[in-house]
Write a protein that binds this DNA or RNA. Sequence first.
DNA 1: AATTTTGCGATGCAATCGCATTGCAAAGGC
DNA 2: GCCTTTGCAATGCGATTGCATCGCAAAATT
Lengths: 222, 222
Amino acid sequence: MPKVVDVEERRKRLVEAVWALAVRGGVEQVTLRKVADEAGVSMGQVQHYYSSMQALVADSLDRAVHAVNTAIEKAVEAAGTASPEVVLRTCLHALVGADEDSVRLMRFSLAVAGRAASDPAMAKVLAPGDEALLAFTAELIGAARRERGSGARGDDRIDEDHIDEDSVNEHSVDDDHIEADICWSLAVSLGVDVALGHRTPEAAGRVLDYHVDQILGGRSRS
Amino acid sequence: MPKVVDVEERRKRLVEAVWALAVRGGVEQVTLRKVADEAGVSMGQVQHYYSSMQALVADSLDRAVHAVNTAIEKAVEAAGTASPEVVLRTCLHALVGADEDSVRLMRFSLAVAGRAASDPAMAKVLAPGDEALLAFTAELIGAARRERGSGARGDDRIDEDHIDEDSVNEHSVDDDHIEADICWSLAVSLGVDVALGHRTPEAAGRVLDYHVDQILGGRSRS
DNA sequence: AATTTTGCGATGCAATCGCATTGCAAAGGC
DNA sequence: GCCTTTGCAATGCGATTGCATCGCAAAATT
């Protein structure tokens, strides 16, 4: 067994090159030679690690999606001990994040989404949040709603005490699930807008926060 | 003045070919020869009507966006005399429509969105609903809210004079505007999911309806 | 030291690309 | 009937594409 190299490192480097190229000029700019050049390696190396262009792009998309998921998980455990409401806001905001990486991944995913429209294999990878994420988010929403419903009056008498009579606060678990679905759909849409430069991350974040305010019912947010 | 032909008809035919090709295999499949072939004309004709490939794709996107807007307007005036709530639902549903055309346009827009990520000129065309549409939608939401708040019990007696009793129904105009923004963002996201085959038009419509139910506050919907 | 196995640089190739160019046919205006 | 102008078919060209192939270098095995 000769010449042992860090395969993962090579692949990662190539994928990064693909991201950079796609963000800079669309998927059409992702060619064997350009990738090799961007990564500072030879064409042969690219071919060595990926049997075809398709495979390269597919793996790049795969890794991009994984990176986004990881970012969400990171956001969740970073705010791990906080209230469910804060956790909810935090992980939703991961999609409209202002940080460079977030925008890069979003733009790349968008650039590749075009191919996904005709390539079912890629479309699968870009599917909306999986059931586990939805369930988790629904759980968060339910918890946050319960928390607001009970512990709302803390510092000063928010007269939320007499709003419960049969009208506003009976949300079912199913409802929470749909709300979770809506939250992620909205976050994705806003994230795309940010990636395209149609919204600032701040503006998108504000819309997201407003929506969370709405679905949690009360208004106890600064 | 020789050989007068219907220029619009020619262009339309070419654009339709572009749509078909892009939906079938992504923007990368849109080439001079393929377009000519798909449209059943010669390459020369394509070049005659569009000075470059860029121009062709740009015009195709332009027409696609216009077609979607037209679909929305059509939906609005088709439900013109109905209640604001119905109008709201109707025009939002235009984006997740089950009809062939709607899906085609969405898929094409998505296919081109990748280019938009790096081409500001195209990104502009794909911008979220313009201010006029947002304002109109906000108006609709406000009207629907007022109608629900008052006319809920008994369809007569619209006592809109004292609806201000401080508790559930104080939505500001600004709020309506943000809600409108959210509605369209959500509708776009759902439309994309439908285009990618991740949701059925029915499921997407249900989510949309649920959301409208929520923002209108009361529950008077079947 | 010889051998084998893997990593990968270099190059060739057929296909395809967008676009420029050329030339001809058809349709008024005179 | 000629002439001009427009619509478009046809073809050529240079550049670029993904991929196959070849060959050499470096390391682990013997």
